[in-house]
């Protein structure tokens, strides 16, 4: 879910830019380090960015009938970590605003915070916490991707609530109302996206597991076990 151009007042747009910048800079620093170590990573990162963009320009078969877009950030966070995902996301969000007129330029900072930083970070934390447990691998991917999506939507609601607090009850009650009104599309979307990305992951495990082994997404035994099951 993107905030549209012109929706946030100027000072909030600036504040979110200021919050987004440190993690972008850290992401760029990490990106440089990775590319120095392994030059071949650049095209692969680029392709992932393209993939996220395409995924987010597709209309998911949605339950509510509205046009919902998957974010795809969960998968990238699992594969490359949250900080590099935030750089990729910033580029993708810029392209989205200029290719599809989704989002905007002044609100780009706010959208980077919600879709590029908080969402992937939440997904990554879930993935790291559950990776080495005995939980089914696909379930872990589902949870990470669905939660990345849900946290993106929580953060967007918070951004909206902070900019437009309620007269009675202030930020808290406007947060609740914004969440409620967007829950109609966002909650089913998060579940569908989690299912889709878990299936995508399963497909990759079956056909090209060397990608996942190279990125050390899951331990080798686990992937091998999943392959022999199928």
């Amino acid at each position: 879910m993107h905030i549209m151009e012109g929706f946030l007042p100027l000072y909030w747009a600036v504040i979110w830019w200021i919050i987004a910048l440190p993690s972008l800079i850290f992401g760029i620093y990490q990106l440089k380090k990775i590319l120095e170590a392994d030059r071949e990573a650049l095209p692969l990162l680029g392709v992932t960015g393209g993939f996220i963009f395409i995924l987010s320009s597709l209309k998911l078969p949605s339950v509510t009938g509205s046009c919902s877009h998957p974010t795809g950030t969960g998968l990238s966070a699992i594969c490359f970590g949250p900080w590099i995902t935030s750089v990729i996301c910033a580029i993708v969000l810029l392209f989205q605003s200029l290719f599809l007129a989704h989002g905007g330029l002044s609100v780009l900072g706010a959208n980077i915070v919600s879709m590029g930083i908080v969402g992937p970070l939440a997904g990554y934390i879930v993935y790291r916490a559950l990776r080495d447990t005995r939980l089914n691998m696909y379930l872990v991917v589902f949870l990470a991707c669905a939660l990345a999506d849900l946290f993106t939507y929580f953060t967007t609601s918070l951004e909206l609530a902070l900019a437009y607090p309620a007269e009675v009850g202030g930020i808290a009650s406007s947060f609740v109302l914004f969440m409620g009104i967007f829950a109609v599309t966002q909650v089913p979307l998060a579940i569908v996206e989690g299912v889709v990305l878990a299936l995508v992951f399963k497909y990759i495990v079956q056909l090209k597991p060397d990608i996942l082994l190279r990125l050390k997404v899951f331990p080798e035994e686990k992937i091998r076990a999943a392959r022999s099951e199928a």
Binding site: L42, L45, G46, G50, F53, F95
Partner: peptide, 12 residues
């Protein structure tokens, strides 16, 4: 960042 952006652009 610019290189990454251009590769993303191309791969889209």
């Amino acid at each position: 960042v610019l290189d990454l952006a251009m590769i993303i652009y191309r791969s889209i």
